[in-house]
Protein backbone atom coordinates (compact mmCIF):
# COMPACT_ATOMS: atom_id res chain seq x y z
CA UNK A 1 0.00 0.00 0.00
CA UNK A 2 1.05 3.58 -0.63
CA UNK A 3 1.01 5.93 2.33
CA UNK A 4 1.87 9.59 2.75
CA UNK A 5 3.75 10.02 6.01
CA UNK A 6 5.17 13.34 7.14
CA UNK A 7 4.97 14.73 3.64
CA UNK A 8 6.66 11.77 1.96
CA UNK A 9 5.07 9.04 -0.14
CA UNK A 10 6.11 5.60 1.05
CA UNK A 11 5.34 2.16 -0.36
CA UNK A 12 4.72 -0.50 2.28
CA UNK A 13 4.79 -4.12 1.21
CA UNK A 14 4.11 -7.42 2.96
CA UNK A 15 1.51 -5.91 5.28
CA UNK A 16 -1.87 -7.44 6.04
CA UNK A 17 -4.65 -5.02 5.13
CA UNK A 18 -6.10 -5.11 8.64
CA UNK A 19 -2.85 -3.98 10.25
CA UNK A 20 -3.45 -0.83 12.28
CA UNK A 21 -1.54 2.25 11.16
CA UNK A 22 0.26 2.21 14.55
CA UNK A 23 2.09 -1.03 13.77
CA UNK A 24 2.87 -0.09 10.20
CA UNK A 25 4.49 3.09 11.51
CA UNK A 26 6.40 1.29 14.25
CA UNK A 27 7.35 -2.08 12.76
CA UNK A 28 7.47 -1.40 9.03
CA UNK A 29 8.54 2.23 8.81
CA UNK A 30 10.66 2.50 11.96
CA UNK A 31 8.71 5.53 13.19
CA UNK A 32 8.60 4.47 16.84
CA UNK A 33 7.71 7.87 18.29
CA UNK A 34 4.04 6.87 18.03
CA UNK A 35 3.38 4.66 21.02
CA UNK A 36 1.34 1.57 21.86
CA UNK A 37 -0.51 1.88 25.14
CA UNK A 38 -3.84 0.05 24.98
CA UNK A 39 -4.72 -0.98 21.44
CA UNK A 40 -8.37 0.03 21.90
CA UNK A 41 -8.33 3.83 21.51
CA UNK A 42 -8.57 4.41 25.26
CA UNK A 43 -5.23 6.01 26.08
CA UNK A 44 -4.25 8.23 23.16
CA UNK A 45 -0.55 7.30 23.20
CA UNK A 46 -0.80 6.39 19.49
CA UNK A 47 -2.32 9.71 18.37
CA UNK A 48 -1.30 10.91 14.89
CA UNK A 49 -2.82 13.45 12.51
CA UNK A 50 -4.77 12.22 9.54
CA UNK A 51 -5.41 15.18 7.25
CA UNK A 52 -4.69 17.37 10.26
CA UNK A 53 -7.18 15.71 12.63
CA UNK A 54 -6.02 13.77 15.69
CA UNK A 55 -6.74 10.04 15.32
CA UNK A 56 -5.89 6.93 17.33
CA UNK A 57 -3.56 5.04 15.01
CA UNK A 58 -4.05 1.78 16.94
CA UNK A 59 -7.62 1.64 15.72
CA UNK A 60 -7.27 2.80 12.13
CA UNK A 61 -6.26 0.18 9.53
CA UNK A 62 -3.29 1.48 7.55
CA UNK A 63 -5.06 0.56 4.33
CA UNK A 64 -7.85 3.01 5.22
CA UNK A 65 -5.52 6.00 5.14
CA UNK A 66 -3.86 5.28 1.81
CA UNK A 67 -3.57 8.55 -0.06
CA UNK A 68 -4.30 10.67 3.00
CA UNK A 69 -1.81 12.88 4.76
CA UNK A 70 -0.49 11.28 7.93
CA UNK A 71 1.65 13.28 10.36
CA UNK A 72 3.48 11.65 13.26
CA UNK A 73 5.45 13.14 16.14
CA UNK A 74 8.58 12.80 13.99
CA UNK A 75 7.02 15.14 11.44
CA UNK A 76 6.14 18.09 13.69
CA UNK A 77 9.47 19.90 13.74
CA UNK A 78 10.70 21.63 10.61
CA UNK A 79 13.34 19.97 8.49
CA UNK A 80 16.08 22.08 10.06
CA UNK A 81 15.03 20.79 13.50
CA UNK A 82 13.02 23.82 14.64
CA UNK A 83 10.37 22.60 17.05
CA UNK A 84 6.75 23.59 16.79
CA UNK A 85 5.34 25.83 19.51
CA UNK A 86 3.79 22.93 21.40
CA UNK A 87 7.01 20.89 21.44
CA UNK A 88 8.96 23.96 22.57
CA UNK A 89 6.46 24.66 25.36
CA UNK A 90 6.72 21.05 26.52
CA UNK A 91 10.47 21.49 27.04
CA UNK A 92 10.10 24.97 28.54
CA UNK A 93 7.58 23.70 31.10
CA UNK A 94 9.38 20.39 31.71
CA UNK A 95 6.12 18.55 31.15
CA UNK A 96 7.30 14.96 30.85
CA UNK A 97 7.87 12.49 33.61
CA UNK A 98 8.32 9.07 32.02
CA UNK A 99 7.50 10.71 28.69
CA UNK A 100 5.78 7.72 27.14
CA UNK A 101 2.39 9.37 26.54
CA UNK A 102 3.78 12.74 25.52
CA UNK A 103 3.99 12.16 21.77
CA UNK A 104 0.25 11.51 21.78
CA UNK A 105 -0.41 14.48 24.05
CA UNK A 106 1.62 16.77 21.77
CA UNK A 107 -0.17 15.53 18.64
CA UNK A 108 -3.57 16.20 20.23
CA UNK A 109 -2.49 19.59 21.58
CA UNK A 110 -1.04 20.62 18.23
CA UNK A 111 -4.31 19.77 16.49
CA UNK A 112 -6.25 21.65 19.17
CA UNK A 113 -4.26 24.85 18.70
CA UNK A 114 -4.66 24.64 14.96
CA UNK A 115 -8.45 24.62 15.25
CA UNK A 116 -8.67 26.77 18.38
CA UNK A 117 -5.70 29.11 18.77
CA UNK A 118 -6.87 30.52 22.12
CA UNK A 119 -8.35 27.62 24.07
CA UNK A 120 -9.83 28.03 27.55
CA UNK A 121 -9.11 25.50 30.31
CA UNK A 122 -12.44 23.86 29.45
CA UNK A 123 -11.49 23.66 25.76
CA UNK A 124 -8.18 22.06 26.71
CA UNK A 125 -9.85 19.58 29.04
CA UNK A 126 -12.33 18.58 26.37
CA UNK A 127 -9.68 18.16 23.68
CA UNK A 128 -7.19 16.32 25.87
CA UNK A 129 -9.57 14.01 27.76
CA UNK A 130 -8.74 11.10 25.45
CA UNK A 131 -5.03 11.17 26.28
CA UNK A 132 -4.04 9.37 29.47
CA UNK A 133 -0.94 10.33 31.39
CA UNK A 134 -0.21 7.65 33.95
CA UNK A 135 2.40 9.89 35.62
CA UNK A 136 -0.19 12.65 36.08
CA UNK A 137 1.45 15.53 34.21
CA UNK A 138 -1.93 17.05 33.29
CA UNK A 139 -1.32 20.24 35.25
CA UNK A 140 1.80 20.99 33.23
CA UNK A 141 0.23 19.92 29.95
CA UNK A 142 -2.48 22.53 30.52
CA UNK A 143 0.12 25.22 31.30
CA UNK A 144 2.23 24.28 28.30
CA UNK A 145 -0.74 24.46 25.93
CA UNK A 146 -1.59 27.96 27.17
CA UNK A 147 2.06 28.96 26.79
CA UNK A 148 2.20 27.56 23.26
CA UNK A 149 -1.00 29.42 22.38
CA UNK A 150 0.49 32.67 23.68
CA UNK A 151 3.68 32.12 21.69
CA UNK A 152 1.77 31.39 18.53
CA UNK A 153 -0.25 34.57 19.06
CA UNK A 154 3.07 36.45 19.24
CA UNK A 155 4.11 34.82 15.99
CA UNK A 156 6.72 32.48 17.43
CA UNK A 157 6.78 29.17 15.61
CA UNK A 158 3.24 29.79 14.50
CA UNK A 159 3.89 28.61 10.99
CA UNK A 160 4.95 25.20 12.23
CA UNK A 161 1.60 24.44 13.79
CA UNK A 162 -0.14 24.33 10.45
CA UNK A 163 2.17 21.81 8.81
CA UNK A 164 0.04 19.29 6.94
Amino acid sequence: MRLNINGKDVEVTDVDETTPLLWVLRDHLGLVGTKYGCGVAQCGACTVHINGAPMRSCSVPASAVAGQKVTTIEGLASKDGKLNAVQAAWIEHDVAQCGYCQAGQIMTATALLKSNPKPTDADIDAAMAGNLCRCGTYIRIRKAIHAAAANIAKGANGEMISQN
Binding site: L31, G33, T34, T72, I73, E74, I91, A96, Q102, I106
Partner: peptide, 12 residues
Protein backbone atom coordinates in the same frame (compact mmCIF):
# COMPACT_ATOMS: atom_id res chain seq x y z
CA UNK B 1 15.95 22.42 35.25
CA UNK B 2 14.12 20.84 32.34
CA UNK B 3 14.68 17.11 31.76
CA UNK B 4 17.74 16.11 29.75
CA UNK B 5 15.73 13.81 27.46
CA UNK B 6 12.94 16.31 26.82
CA UNK B 7 13.98 17.23 23.29
CA UNK B 8 14.21 13.55 22.35
CA UNK B 9 10.82 12.91 23.94
CA UNK B 10 8.98 15.71 22.14
CA UNK B 11 10.45 14.69 18.79
CA UNK B 12 9.65 10.98 19.21
Amino acid sequence: ITGVDNRAIVTG
